[in-house]
Structures are given as C-alpha cells and as structure tokens.
Simulated scan of single mutants.
Amino acid sequence: MSGILDSVNQRTQLVGQNRLELLLFRLNGRQRFGINVFKVREVLQCPALTAMPKLNPLVRGIAHIRGQTISVIDLSMATGGRRIEDLKTAFIVIAEYNRSVQGFLVGAVERIINTNWDAIMPPPQGTGRASYLTAVTEVEGELVEILDVEKILNEISPLNTEVSAEVASTLNTDAHKDKIIFIADDSSVARNQVKRALTTLGMEIEMAKNGLEALKRLKEIAEETGDVTDKVGVLVSDIEMPEMDGYTLTAEIKNTPELQKLHVVLHTSLSGVFNQAMVKKVGADDFIAKFHPDELASAVQKWLGPEE
C-alpha cells in the first residue's frame, strides 16, 4: 500500500507544473510515437491472438490477458500505415480510454521519458498522418508523434453523442441563455463529440484546441466583461493537451481573480487512482470520465448553477 501511495504522491507533484510522462514506442520503421503513461496499464510481448469473425479490419484479433478479453488494434494500420507483420517480436500496449480497455499492437517499445507539456506542440499542418496526431514533441533531436487515439477508436467503434430523451427533458438553461459553454480539447473528434452532446442545452459554445489557447481567450473575455463568469457559464476541459494541460489550466484559472469563479469540469479519457487527488489539488469543480453524454450534460447543467 505504501508503494501505491508513494507513486500517487510522486505523480501529484507534477500537477500544476505542466509535466507528463510519455511511453515511447515505434510502429514500422524509425519514427517514434508517444502515449501518456497515465493511460497505460501494462506493456507485454504480443501473445497469441484469436481471430474472430466480422472484426473491424484494424483489429488484428482478441487477446486473453489476466482473465480479460481485449481487442488488439494495429496502430500502424489504424493511422494509414502498413500492418505490423512479425507478431512474435511485437508488443501490446494495454491502455484505458473512454471507460474501456484496449490493446494497441506496436512494433517496439523503448522507454518512459519525463517532459513538460509546454514542450508538446500542436501537429504541423500538411503532413500525411497529421489527421491522426494531436501533438508532437522533440526527443534527442527526433520528432515524436502523439496519436489521436480517440479519433482512431471512434473510427472503429463510433461513440453515441446524443443525450437521452429522459435526461434532455430535465435540462433547463433558460436563465443562462446569454452565456457560453467553453470547451477545451486537443482532439478534433473529442471537441465535436462534446459540442454535439452539449448542444442539447441550447447555449452558445466556444472551443479551444489546448489549455494555453483557452486561457488566453478566457482572459480576453474577462478583460471585456470584468469577470469571465459574466459571459462564460462553465468550462469543460480535457486534461491532456499540448502547450498547457487541463490541470495547469485549472490551476491558472483558480489563481487568477477575474477567472477564479469559473466552474471547471475536467472531462478526460484518463482514468486510474491518481485523478481524484489531482482534481482536488488544482481546484477543479468536477471530473467526468469520457464519454457519456448524459453525465456530461447533467454535470454542465449542475455547474451552471440555479436559475437566476
């Protein structure tokens, strides 16, 4: 137990410091890729895969790992590359996204590095694989690509973004029609999923691609109005974002007088034992795991506050 607590304490020290840990891996060839360690449950040599009828072509098979059946997605194929052929030398990165566990087939796994979110930059425009990237960074003079896993998963198994009729009937934001809902997320797929779900509330929605962009815009609004809450009803923010993550964004908001009354809902595919400690430390109002439109819409309604 003390080992787990020490690990939690070590990672919560990163909160507000805009830092993260990346697991580096390769698909086919020399190009390096990265995934946030928080999303990784374990990494193991690729076990025997069981072929199943009618699987998506990007799913190479099913693996039985520690009593659980896990779909194994070929990350190279999923991003438009050639399939990973030699499964005997390949690895599976087992990760949790959007309340489910997936296995990602990769060619090789390197190591974990500790870096700053401000060293993680938006992807360059015009590259062939750019639509599958949320960010890039540089390690040892080489470009590391961070994949938009939410986009990949949505292409394989699209998420429902509609709020149920039952929940929709309980939503009433008439008193807040003059305010906006602000969304910050680096994944274009995730931004649009959140937007579609929250459109049910009938309010104007504004979006930013990362925490730094969101913070600048919120400060602009505060300069115009005197207090950001005069215009913005609630902020829904991802945690993993280039340049400034959601934890740091929240801490900046809560430490800025003209922003600190803004309610912040952290909405993320990250899961695990660390999040609640981190959410409490930075002062976020709520934490919602992606992606359940009913829970998200209800949380936004809650933090908009009572009718004025």
Rank of each mutant, 00 (worst) to 15 (best):
D6G: 01
V8L: 15
Q13T: 09
Q13E: 11
Q17F: 12
L24S: 06
V37H: 03
F38P: 02
F38H: 02
C46Y: 08
A48E: 12
T50V: 14
A63H: 00
H64K: 11
I65V: 08
I70T: 03
I70W: 05
S71I: 06
G81A: 10
I84E: 01
A95E: 03
V101Y: 09
L105E: 06
L105S: 07
L105G: 08
T115L: 12
I120F: 11
M121K: 15
M121N: 14
P122T: 11
T127W: 11
R129K: 02
V136P: 05
V136F: 14
T137F: 12
E138M: 01
E138F: 08
E145S: 14
I146L: 15
L147F: 01
I152H: 05
L153W: 07
S157R: 00
S157M: 07
L159G: 07
V167K: 12
S169L: 10
T170F: 09
D178Y: 14
I180G: 02
D186L: 08
A190Q: 03
N192P: 02
Q193F: 06
Q193H: 14
L201M: 10
I205P: 00
N210K: 02
N210S: 03
A222M: 06
T225M: 01
T229S: 00
V232N: 04
L235E: 02
T248Y: 11
L259W: 05
L259Q: 07
Q260A: 13
Q260N: 15
Q260V: 04
L262A: 04
L266M: 14
T268R: 00
S269C: 04
S271Y: 06
V273W: 10
A277W: 05
M278S: 09
V279L: 07
K280T: 14
A284Y: 03
F287K: 09
I288Q: 15
A297W: 05
A299N: 01
V300C: 04
L304F: 00
